[in-house]
């Protein structure tokens, strides 16, 4: 009991240690798993995140020429699986924890990333090209030849590779 009393008196003398949060700043850890950030320029819309998400928060849908990557936070459990499994490193969890939302915002509380398809310069088909971070993971040395092949659609790439083989 005397120990408690000592702590209590010390608290009284030192003053409150309360975080002034709603009115002031607060401490946020660097590695806090908060809202997602999807880099649409790196993402290849492979669907790994959708497959791996335990709560089904991520949904990728094709609309015309654009893949829409939607994350609905009201069912997200902030486990970080999407970041861990993302082959390109397009998904990063930020430390933004402001998740409170009202009834009207419930189904609008999402992060949307639009991954647009590109046109193949040879045949004109639409496709999502492999991005540089993905290629960097697969090949130790990247030369201009690989970079040129990246721009072609899968069919044309096959043709180009065979042509190079038999020349």
């Amino acid at each position: 009991m005397s120990g408690f009393l000592k702590i209590a008196i010390r608290n009284l003398l030192k003053g409150p240690v309360t975080d002034p949060y709603p009115f002031g700043k607060t401490f946020i850890p660097e590695k806090l798993r908060g809202k997602l950030k999807v880099d649409a320029s790196i993402c290849t819309a492979c669907g790994t995140c959708q497959e791996v998400c335990p709560s089904g928060a991520i949904y990728i849908k094709k609309e015309n020429d654009v893949y829409v990557h939607t994350t609905w936070y009201n069912t997200c459990c902030f486990c970080g699986n999407c970041e861990f499994f993302c082959p390109t490193g397009a998904i990063k969890l930020t430390n933004d924890f402001h998740t409170a939302n009202t009834k009207e915002e419930k189904f609008k509380f999402v992060t949307i990333a639009a991954i647009s398809e590109k046109e193949c310069p040879v045949c004109g088909n639409k496709f999502v090209p492999a991005t540089l971070p993905l290629i960097e993971k697969s090949y130790p040395h990247i030369n201009d030849e690989i970079k040129n092949l990246m721009k072609l659609c899968p069919e044309c790439r096959k043709k180009a590779a065979f042509e190079r083989l038999y020349q």
Binding site: D19, T26, L32, N74, F97, T99, A100, N101, K103, F109
Partner: peptide, 14 residues
């Protein structure tokens, strides 16, 4: 439900 505070668990500040 008037306010939703998602998170697993949500942060005290949230």
């Amino acid at each position: 439900v008037d306010v939703n505070v998602p998170g697993c668990p949500p942060r005290p500040q949230a």
